[in-house]
Amino acid sequence: MTRAQFITVALAFLVGSGLASALWMARRGHRDRLWMLIAVALGPVLAVIAPERVT
């Protein structure tokens, strides 16, 4: 795997997991567009933060 492919896969994982977390938050009632921006920026970290915000 080349360096460019690795970076592409890592960024795809980061953005994909962030968007999945944002959609999960939207289904729980947090529909602010700021969540989408935060989700893309933080990615997998949001998956740890999100359950605390929902309860």
Rank of each mutant, 00 (worst) to 15 (best):
A39D: 05
L46D: 03
F6M: 05
T8S: 08
L23P: 00
D32Y: 06
R53N: 01
G16P: 02
M25S: 02
I38W: 05
V9Y: 09
G29S: 02
A41W: 12
Q5R: 12
Q5P: 00
H30G: 04
A10T: 09
R33A: 09
P51K: 11
G16N: 05
V54R: 05
A47H: 10
P44I: 10
V48S: 09
L14Y: 07
R27H: 13
P44E: 06
A41Q: 10
I7L: 12
A50N: 09
F6D: 09
A26T: 07
A12R: 02
W35Q: 01
F6N: 10
T8R: 15
R3N: 04
T8I: 02
G43D: 03
F13L: 15
M1F: 03
L34D: 06
I49P: 00
Q5H: 03
L11K: 04
G29V: 00
A39S: 11
H30N: 06
V15E: 07
G43N: 09
A26Y: 14
G16M: 02
S21N: 11
I49H: 05
V48A: 13
E52C: 05
M1A: 02
A50R: 10
H30I: 11
F6K: 15
W24T: 00
M25T: 02
L19M: 14
L37P: 00
M36Q: 13
Q5L: 13
R28H: 11
L42Q: 12
F13G: 08
R27V: 04
T55L: 08
R28N: 08
V48M: 13
T8V: 15
V15D: 04
P51H: 06
G18M: 02
E52S: 14
R33I: 13
A47I: 06
R28Y: 10
L42V: 14
M36N: 04
I38M: 06
M25R: 01
A41I: 15
R3T: 07
W24C: 02
S17P: 01
L34C: 05
S17I: 10
Q5N: 06
G16W: 07
A22S: 07
V9R: 14
A22P: 00
G18W: 01
R27Y: 12
R3L: 07
I7C: 08
G29R: 01
W35K: 04
R27L: 09
R3Y: 03
A10H: 11
F6I: 03
L34Y: 10
A26P: 00
D32I: 05
D32N: 12
I49Q: 08
I49S: 00
L42F: 09
V15T: 08
V45N: 03
H30S: 03
T55K: 14
F13M: 10
L34K: 15
T8D: 15
A4I: 10
L14W: 15
Q5A: 12
R33M: 04
A50S: 14
V40E: 08
A12N: 01
I7A: 13
V48Q: 15
A26H: 09
M36V: 14
V48D: 07
A10W: 12
A10E: 08
S17Q: 06
G43I: 01
W35I: 11
R27W: 11
M1Q: 02
L23H: 12
M36K: 04
L34N: 14
P51M: 10
G18L: 02
L11H: 01
I49K: 00
H30A: 06
A12K: 03
A47G: 15
V54N: 09
L14A: 07
T55P: 12
W24F: 08
